[in-house]
Design a protein around this nucleic acid. Structure first.
Length: 895
RNA sequence: AGGAGAUUAGCUCAGUUGGUAGAGCGCCACCCUUACAAGGUGGAUGCCAUCGGUUCGAACCCGGUAUCUCCUACCA
């Protein structure tokens, strides 16, 4: 130890190794201790952890370490997600740089390449998680493509398939032409694009007349199957039922009426292209219209439209517009801002596409998932997210679960070459068709949406479908910590699948963590370049400082702005803790204590009132931390620790105890040291869930004969610490020290406001009123003199108050008049100003209180003790006012 | 368009059974006092967005308004 600055870089790696070597994070499948389980939302294998992960993981680590210290059999189960589309896209991109293309090397070879990537980056992510201090049971690390998980996925697929809940069908889905796969909604990002709105004349068949249709996508005109107006729109009523001669194709299409059309928007006439627009698709289904596909899977016009065949969407659009203009069918073009879906992985524009895909029915599955949250079986924190959850689940649609990718769980369906029917099995490959017995079977080329396996995560990680001890002990888990952005994609689906296959919810509580934004409040994103790398932060100020920065700012339901100066502030706090410990541990001579000496006390009389005050203060902090943790208020718990360590222990206790520690007799010194160790022994445990490295490092330096490991120690509690805590805390001593603090503050205040530097030696008259006041002053004379840097301290009244600063300390039974002669030290102006300011404050109080006490209704309705307190306060303030006025008069007198 | 949330010190934000507003950072003054200058002591700064209601009493409860943020959907 004992650099005067805390050096996290020298500590963290060593400490993490200590934990690993001692298997501190291992959970037991069978234990007499109560279980506590957290399943880590598995980070994507695609790259590095970002600061959002740091927050998410730190929150979990606080719960997990706290419960571990509380004696629970804790399992924090780590994992990594294969993240199908994201990983495939990234690996494909990186291979392309070397001139290697997926389609050239083939499925098997490409998947091998991804596995190589996974091993490299998976390990990198794990080491980053360790640097943060995550106390996961690493032996249980699970990857979403592990054999056991794959088995489970196939069993679920088969079960749902047999139920009819999984089916194959042709629907309109989001399609990435670049990646050539279906996308989930979460993979579609809407961006505002400045585009155009083209007003096109559609000729009415058999006439010379036109109807004008406004569109942002003229190229899909090729797939139009109708023109639609609002049924109540007078302008077009007579048009309904007539035919339109579709430009560029000559195809005749009907005019239909549907209330989906907004008569106010554009021309009030909409072209219907069911194969390329979600609304049009719905209209198409309602009106039983045909659906004409216009695009190839890679986003080009199909060959049937010879004039445009092979053109990309953008080029086709230009060509179509040009051709319409040439035929004088383009009425006008307007600038139009449009929100367009983009593929979050490749950046290309997403096309709604008619496609044959696998779907899972959702409506029935989501009912119990909704119910379990509404009735509180699973609790949402903060509670407001239940509204969002409900809103989503009540408007759920079937889920497209197939993806045209190579990386993922391959769909366990085989198609028969003879009868064309499907065979689905749970293990291995089928040898014959279920329906006709043919052996000409071919497996579906597609893989499952990543979220399909993620939805099973709470039980597949514990060994399902085997009936494992882990599953029995740890399902359901206690808390799931995650972002609210995946409440539907993940949380809801885990709820549904958990209830379906485990007959119980997957977790008792969901904690939705905040979003970490940059210092300007912007979302962190690659495109803005404002992402913060947590590893860089750890390297600069240490993992504990980072953790504490995130935790201390935590407030349920609110985002965190990451500020560098605040981070530095908490780095300073780590240093403060370090030096507080250094004060306790560096005092020579060193003696080693047995654990029992740190847990029990000898004679109470050996402890000073300062010690007793500290123990009371510690106890108050401890209870507050526990209460806040139990109520998921991690931020407030962190702040409890902050203010105890800095403002109670360092600011007051250390200063109060110095005299005894430096100057007193040997046995008294020994007693002081023992108390310091007793406090730090416990304080380390309280701090540990939040800042595990520094607390463990300090703990390892405690002069204990057999040092154990903090990570698996026992959290202090009223029961376990009964002897120590209840013997030492003492409300009378606590009050005594609070009184003492008030005198010291009063003197310091006079010093500060009169600009009397620390170098100026001052004399003070402290005039007590009553025995208690006298006793306290007498007992703490040395302390007062030291902390206020007094030259002399006199308990008798001064002969005159002229040319003196005066303050009245008045705390219930403790009353002291503080008089400090200022003659020759300062201009009296400062003191006059100080007293006037005080008097104004007191006067304000008097006005307020007397007004209140004149109000008859207040006297009738307010609780008695409140009224009484106000009356007492009023009297006290009136006296204070008198005294201040008298002193002001004195000061202004000239001799 | 629908839903949710926010508005408190210069900045970032706390503030639950309604009872005279708090913290960190920043700022000002003085100080390297043997744990710590990444420190110490003292100080300044608020019509708690706005209008109304309930109440003896509102930052807090209810309603309206303004501004901002996020989510979902959509813009043919």
């Amino acid at each position: 130890m004992f650099s005067d600055r805390y050096q996290p870089a020298e500590v963290e790696e060593k400490i993490y190794k200590l934990w690993m070597d001692n298997e501190c994070f291992k959970a037991e499948d069978a234990s007499t201790r109560p279980p506590f389980c957290v399943i880590l939302p598995p980070p994507n294998v695609t790259g590095q952890l970002h600061i959002g992960h740091a927050l998410n993981h730190t929150i979990q680590d606080v719960y997990v370490r706290y419960k571990r210290l509380k004696g629970f059999n804790v399992l924090w189960l780590p994992g990594i997600d294969h993240a199908g589309i994201a990983t495939q896209a990234i690996v494909e991109k990186s291979l392309a740089k070397e001139g290697v293309f997926r389609k050239d090397i083939g499925r098997e070879e490409f998947i091998n390449k991804i596995w190589e990537w996974k091993h490299k980056y998976g390990d990198q992510i794990l080491s980053q998680m360790k640097r943060l201090g995550n106390s996961c049971d690493w032996d249980r690390l699970t990857f979403t493509l592990d054999e056991g998980v794959s088995q489970a996925v196939r069993r679920v697929f088969l079960a749902l398939y047999k139920q009819g809940a999984i089916y194959r069908g042709t629907r309109l889905i989001n399609w990435s032409p670049k990646l050539e796969t279906a996308l989930s909604d979460i993979e579609v990002e809407h961006k505002d694009i400045k585009g155009s709105m083209w007003h096109i004349k559609y000729p009415i068949a058999g006439t010379d007349e036109f109807v004008v249709v406004a569109t942002t996508r003229p190229e899909t005109l090729l797939g139009d199957v109708a023109v639609c107006v609002h049924p109540d729109d007078e302008r077009y009523k007579n048009l309904v039922g007539k035919k339109i001669r579709l430009p560029l194709t000559g195809r005749e299409i009907p005019v239909i009426a549907d209330s989906y059309v907004d008569p106010e928007f554009g021309s009030g006439v909409v072209k219907i292209t069911p194969a390329h627009d979600f609304n049009d698709y719905a209209v198409g289904v309602r009106h039983e219209l045909p659906m004409i596909n216009v695009l190839t899977l890679d986003g080009k016009i199909i060959d049937e439209f010879t004039a445009y065949a092979g053109l990309k969407v953008k080029d086709a659009r230009k060509q179509v517009v040009q051709d319409l203009e040439d035929q004088s069918l383009l009425e006008k073009t307007e600038v139009h801002k449009n929100s367009v879906g983009h593929c979050s992985r490749s950046g290309c524009v997403v096309e709604p596409m008619l496609s044959k895909q696998w779907f899972m029915t959702m409506e029935d599955k989501m009912k119990p998932a909704l119910h379990a949250v509404v009735n509180g079986t699973t609790e949402f924190v903060p509670e407001m997210w239940t509204k969002t959850y409900r809103h989503w689940l009540e408007n759920v649609q079937d889920w497209c679960i197939s993806r045209q990718l190579w990386w993922g769980h391959r769909i366990p369906v085989w198609y028969c070459g003879d009868c064309e029917k499907e065979t689905v099995i749970e293990v291995g490959e089928p040898s014959a068709c279920d329906h006709c017995g043919s052996s000409k079977l071919k497996q579906d080329e597609d893989v499952l949406d990543t979220w399909f396996s993620s939805a099973l995560w709470p039980f597949t990680t514990l060994g399902w479908p085997e009936k494992t001890e882990s599953l029995k002990t740890f399902y359901p888990s206690d808390i799931m910590v995650t972002g609210s952005d995946i409440i539907f994609f993940w949380i809801a689906r885990m709820m549904a699948q958990g209830i379906e296959f485990m007959k119980d919810v997957p977790f008792r509580k969901v904690y939705f963590n905040s979003l970490v934004r940059d210092s300007q409040g912007r979302k962190m994103s690659k495109s803005l370049g404002n992402s913060i790398d947590p590893v860089g932060l750890i390297e600069s100020h240490g993992a504990d400082a980072l953790r504490f920065t995130l935790l201390a700012q935590l407030s349920l339901g609110k985002d965190i702005k990451f500020s560098q100066t605040r981070f530095e502030g908490y780095r300073n706090f780590m240093n403060k803790i370090w030096n507080g410990a250094r004060f306790a541990l560096n005092t020579e001579p060193q003696k080693m204590y047995s654990p029992s000496e740190l847990d029990h006390i000898g004679s109470k009389s050996h402890y000073s009132v300062y010690d007793q005050w500290l123990v009371s203060s510690f106890e108050k902090m401890l209870f507050s931390v526990e209460k806040n943790l139990e109520n998921d208020k991690l931020g407030e718990a962190a702040q409890d620790i902050y203010s105890f360590v800095w403002h109670e222990f360092c600011d007051w206790y250390i200063e109060l105890s110095k005299i005894r520690l430096y100057k007193a007799r040997a046995e008294e010194q020994e007693q002081s040291r023992l108390l310091l160790f007793q406090i730090w022994n416990r304080l380390c445990k309280v701090m540990h869930p939040f800042i595990p490295f520094i607390s463990e490092e300090i703990y390892q330096h405690l002069p204990l004969k057999d040092v154990d490991i903090l990570a698996t120690a026992e959290f202090p509690s009223q029961e376990s610490d009964k002897n120590w805590m209840s013997s030492l805390k003492n409300e009378v001593s606590f009050q005594e020290v609070e009184n003492l603090k008030s005198v010291i503050s009063a003197i310091r205040n006079i010093r500060g406001e009169n600009r009397l530097g620390a170098g100026v030696k001052i004399k003070a008259y402290l005039v007590p009123e009553g025995d208690l006041s006298q006793k306290i002053l007498g007992q703490h004379e040395q302390t007062i003199m030291r902390l206020c840097m007094l030259e002399t301290m006199d308990q008798s009244a001064p002969t005159s108050l002229k040319q003196s600063a005066v303050a009245d300390v008045n705390q219930e039974a403790f009353k002291v008049k503080v008089v400090i002669p200022l003659a020759g030290l300062v201009d009296m102006k400062e003191e006059v100003a100080r007293l006037e300011k005080n008097r104004a404050k007191v006067d304000n109080d008097i006005q307020l209180l007397s007004g209140k006490l004149k109000n008859k209704k207040y006297l009738q309705n307010a609780p008695e003790d409140l009224v009484l307190a106000d009356k007492l306060l009023l009297e006290k303030q009136k006296q204070a006012f008198e005294k201040l006025s008298a002193q002001l008069l004195l000061l202004q007198e000239t001799d």
